[in-house]
Design a protein around this nucleic acid. Structure first.
Length: 505
RNA sequence: AGCGGGGUGGGGCAGUCUGGAGUGCCCGGAGGGCCCAUAACCCUCAGGUCAGAGGUUCAAAUCCUCUCCCCGCUACCA
């Protein structure tokens, strides 16, 4: 039985439509998931939506919609996002699924029965404009920093989770598991913060209704994060063997919840902890943070109409250093599309297909030239980068081989041999035997190039799946896995040469 | 303020943990080659006191100290 691999993205909050950041996270997770499938692992890839909480209720209210109706429409957008961008998630969880709600109640009850939850009072400075609490440190002259008005001291009945109790265990876990959080510097940040002490966590709300009622007190709903984090478990109904998660892919803004709160809950509920948290950065546009108020938005759906989906996937995976913030601009996207996808890869495919058609009527058989093929032996290097979640580096190594293929063709200059075989007016007087020899040589070059491409397809599938599909179609290659890398295909039949990537203007 | 990240040829980034010739990637500039191919492909060259200062060392972009400049985060809204 093959090794299981459970990967999740964060579930998206349904108070507004998907943006580039949501997309980036899904593409990263998808690429990793696909890579592990090619390794032959039994992958379960989860994504979904986080639908409760006051913000959602408010967003719906603003549009005059019923909350459920509102989230349903947003959820459709997130599902569409996955579809449009070829995200290979195996399941899509919604926190409004009855199954999830039941599970949350169960866990809440379980933790409550263990004595890890108590009723108390949450008090703090509340700004009615922001509808949130502030700590006294955040206040400026006792006023809300956003609305510049007086805040109220409010007491609210609330249930608390004894998170402070887990401080030492969390700290120990973080210190012992050096690769629990990738990149490493994020782990240090969290450790520093945990050392400053954990407070108990308020995990219920009474000020609004849009949430899961507490199983022990229906005046309260469960705090959204307690609810949301449990999706990673509730989604495994009927396939519990997948736990623990191998990787949670999240953004840097919600690391605290995943690295501290989530493990505490799991400890309290008696579950194993996830193995790894992969924290990606944010995408900036012209150095500015994506922001609706500042009008800096990139709509993934509009983007997908303007550029090939694979170009966008490729760009994000290649351009943005894994784990760090990155920049997005259409100019850079075009540049990668035109230079790397169209010129390096697309043109490589096309020149090979065109020559096989021209010189061999589309069907060629020959000996493999080790000069090139031994350079395709990059699996260990690339796999290491992938397992360390350096997706951009993995892609860079693969691209190095793509370029080697172009160099190979240039060096071998098959067209020169082609001419000697009667594809031009020159060299007509060559003998039959030397012609045969040339033909073998030409065949060998082209078969070798095709074989190299077959391997490139395997490597690139997690990054640009539908383009790989197109290449395979032209060469008649089947879908393959890493185990197929080393087999040697000495004959190939190609179809018509087609443009793989059209350039963008 | 505390914590963290960053300052590397014209632009964008790796490289720094585990010192070893300024090495690498993408774009841009100059020149050449090729003509199979999406005016694509290949080769060569120009260009950097690796933010600044001091220190450790046979040797520092890399380790240590200080300074300057950018940018994040500081938890119960998600």
């Amino acid at each position: 039985m093959s090794k299981k691999f459970y990967i999740t993205t964060a579930i998206d909050y349904t108070n507004s439509s998907p943006h580039l950041g949501h997309l980036y996270e899904k593409i990263c997770a998808d690429c990793i998931a696909r890579w592990h499938r090619l390794l032959g692992e039994d992958v379960f890839f989860l994504t979904g939506t986080d639908e409760h909480g006051q913000k959602v209720e408010n967003a719906a209210l603003k549009l005059g919609k019923k909350t459920k109706q509102f989230v349903d429409s947003i959820v459709e957008e997130f599902k569409k996002l996955c579809k449009v961008y070829n995200i290979s998630n195996d399941y899509f969880i919604r926190t409004t699924d009855p199954q999830h709600e039941e599970f949350c109640k169960e866990i809440f009850k379980k933790v409550y029965d263990k004595g890890e939850i108590y009723k108390g009072e949450y008090s703090g400075y509340y700004c009615t404009g922001c509808e949130r609490f502030y700590t006294d440190k955040e206040l400026i002259n006792g006023e809300c920093p956003v609305h510049k008005r007086k805040v109220e001291w409010v007491n609210e009945e609330s249930y608390f989770f004894k998170m402070s109790k887990y401080q030492d265990r969390i700290l120990k876990f973080l210190e012992e598991n050096k690769d629990f959080i990738i990149p490493e510097f994020r782990r240090k940040e969290i450790i520093n913060r945990v050392k400053q002490g954990l407070k108990d966590l308020s995990i219920s709300r009474t000020s609004f209704k849009w949430g899961i009622p507490l199983p022990i007190d229906d005046k309260h709903v469960i705090y959204v994060w307690f609810d949301a984090l449990l999706n990673y478990l509730s989604a495994l109904k009927g396939r519990e063997k997948n736990w623990p998660a191998d990787i949670h892919v999240i953004g840097k803004d919600i690391l605290w919840f995943h690295a501290v709160i989530w493990p505490s809950i799991l400890m309290a509920a008696g579950y194993e902890l996830p193995k790894k948290i992969f924290v990606h950065g944010f995408i900036n546009v012209k150095g500015e943070k994506l922001s609706k108020t500042a009008g800096i938005i990139v709509d993934p759906f509009i983007l997908a109409e303007k550029y090939p989906v694979d170009a966008i996937r490729y760009f994000l995976l290649r351009e943005i250093p894994s784990g760090e913030d990155g920049n997005f601009s259409e100019d850079d996207l075009k540049s990668r599309l035109n230079n790397e996808l169209a010129n390096d890869l697309g043109n490589l495919v096309r020149r090979i297909v065109a020559m096989i058609n021209k010189y061999f009527d589309g069907v060629v058989e020959g000996e493999i030239d080790e000069d090139l093929i031994k350079k395709s032996d990059i699996f260990d290097k690339v796999n290491k980068e992938m397992l360390n979640l350096h997706l951009n580096k993995a892609l860079e190594i693969i691209w190095g081989f793509v370029k080697e293929c172009n160099v190979y063709i240039n060096d071998k200059a098959p067209w020169k041999i082609g001419k000697s075989l009667g594809f031009s007016k020159f060299n007509e007087k060559r003998s039959f035997s030397s012609k045969e020899k040339d033909k073998e040589k030409l065949a060998s070059i082209l078969v070798t190039a095709a074989e190299a491409l077959r391997r490139i397809c395997i490597y690139l599938e997690p990054f640009i799946p539908s383009s790989v599909e197109k290449i395979r179609k032209q060469f008649g290659f089947k879908k393959e896995m890493f185990a197929d890398l080393d087999k040697v295909v000495k004959s190939v039949k190609v179809g018509k040469a087609e443009i793989l990537f059209k350039k963008a203007e």
